[in-house]
């Protein structure tokens, strides 16, 4: 940790056996995420973004290579890592409070009530403790998921296309919220997204992945001070950067169109 690297990915490859043969989802990826940094990963479907994130969470193993947290290899899920999934992934039979208590139940610990109350206040969920997930809007559900992921104070937050299902306005709101929480906690955040705008707005660095096999294609710095406002999105720098990334992704998809798809199921 002396070099300030929180997450380190070295020569990470993952092969999924499928009915139509082996699928190389990610191929020799290298990535460093420094402590207190926000990094977003964009790329076309099938670029292995989700696979990369899941191996970092310890949910999946790598076929070769290594992922490290604070210099130690990640082989199993750990409480240093909080995960926010695609669609809120709440348990529909539990109310908001019980959903947030879920990680503590699994870990066999008492929930940190004061910290959770602070988070609930921060995301505007006060008074919703006893609501059932189905009574909440998509944005509210994702807020609950955010509180749940941060409730046990992980030092890393992995977000897997968290706001993809939300409308544009709610998404913008959630992006501001994530930055606010980041400025409060300085949690290291790795975000996977389909939205180039979201990737640029939130991140210090945007990583572009290419598809089949998933490789790290390029890296772009986003040199704007925080807190950021949506106004930076209309600056020339962001406009140019968006276009560059868009071209990389579209170009990659075009070159892919000629290739046979090894499987119908895209690995995120």
């Amino acid at each position: 940790m002396s070099d300030g690297v929180k997450l380190r990915v070295r020569q990470a490859s993952k092969i999924y056996p499928t009915a139509s043969g082996d699928l190389l989802a990610i191929d020799r990826c290298d990535l460093d995420v420094r402590a207190g940094e926000i990094v977003s990963i964009v790329g076309p479907s099938g670029s292995g973004k989700t696979t990369l994130l899941w191996t970092m969470s310890g949910l999946h193993s790598l076929s070769s290579g290594e992922v490290q947290l604070d210099g130690k290899p990640i082989t199993a899920p750990s409480r240093d890592i909080g995960m926010v999934f695609q669609d809120a992934n709440l348990l529909p039979w539990r109310n908001v409070q019980a959903n947030i208590a879920f990680p503590f139940e699994i870990m066999g610990q008492q929930p940190d009530k004061a910290w959770i109350a602070q988070l609930m206040h921060r995301v505007g969920l006060e008074g919703f403790e006893n609501r059932m997930p189905r009574e909440l809007s998509g944005g509210m559900q994702q807020r609950v998921a955010l509180v749940r992921a941060l409730s046990f104070k992980p030092s890393v937050l992995l977000m897997d296309e968290p706001f993809g299902a939300l409308d544009a306005f709610t998404r913008e709101e959630m992006n501001h919220l994530v930055e606010e929480i980041y400025l409060d906690t300085r949690t290291t955040i790795l975000l996977i997204t389909h939205s180039i705008e979201e990737a640029i707005f939130l991140a210090d660095r945007v990583i572009v992945m290419s598809a089949r096999p998933g490789r790290i294609a390029s890296e772009h710095l986003v040199p704007f001070a925080r807190p950021r406002s949506m106004e930076i999105m209309s600056t020339k720098e962001v406009f140019d950067l968006t276009n560059i990334i868009k071209k990389e992704i579209v170009g990659d998809q075009k070159s892919m169109a000629g290739r046979p798809r090894s499987t119908a199921r895209a690995a995120g």
Binding site: S57, G58, M83, F85, N89, F102, I106
Partner: peptide, 16 residues
């Protein structure tokens, strides 16, 4: 699989 992954991300056992 999403909900099972959620539980596993907190280190849940098969029984849990």
């Amino acid at each position: 699989s999403g909900k099972i992954a959620l539980a596993r991300s907190y280190g849940a056992s098969t029984l849990q």
